[in-house]
Amino acid sequence: MRHTLAVLVENNPGVLARISGLFSRRAYNIHSLAVCQTENPSLSIMTIVVEGDSQVIEQVTKQLHKLVVVHKVTNLSNEAVVDRELALIRVKVKQETRLEILQTVDIFRGRVVDLGRSSLTIELTGDEDKIDAFVRTMKTYGILELVRTGRIAIARSES
């Protein structure tokens, strides 16, 4: 099963190496990893999607806690969360497919962010499934380039 871990770490050089080194050395499987500074500039948050059963996740969490640079590990899979990914997709476009593509982009609430003679660049946010579905549709037109951020997630506020 996939788990989303929010790992609050020090914002220092070498921290990413410590985290990624831990995962590779102990053969934990990272599905995606997104890093950014938090509102506190001395801390970063890493959103790590990791594959494994509950025992593996327990070990990952404990091993992460052992790193001095790690302040907090939250398993967001146990909580109600909002999660998002951002994708940028450049698709081949022809006169006769242009309208179709634009309509699809609209349905998925994406945005066209760049326009070329024979290609379109689309920005799309959403959860993984939504982006997967969009990517599948675009494949029929021909994807020239695709980048995805990996999942970022945040716990929902209590109502």
């Binding site: 070498g14 190496a17 410590r18 080194g21 831990l22 050395r25 790193l67 001095v68």
Partner: peptide, 14 residues
């Protein structure tokens, strides 16, 4: 050396 010893130190400083 900090990189080489990441997996075998409790912590390290450069």
């Amino acid at each position: 050396i900090t990189g080489m010893t990441l997996p075998i130190t409790k912590h390290s400083y450069l």
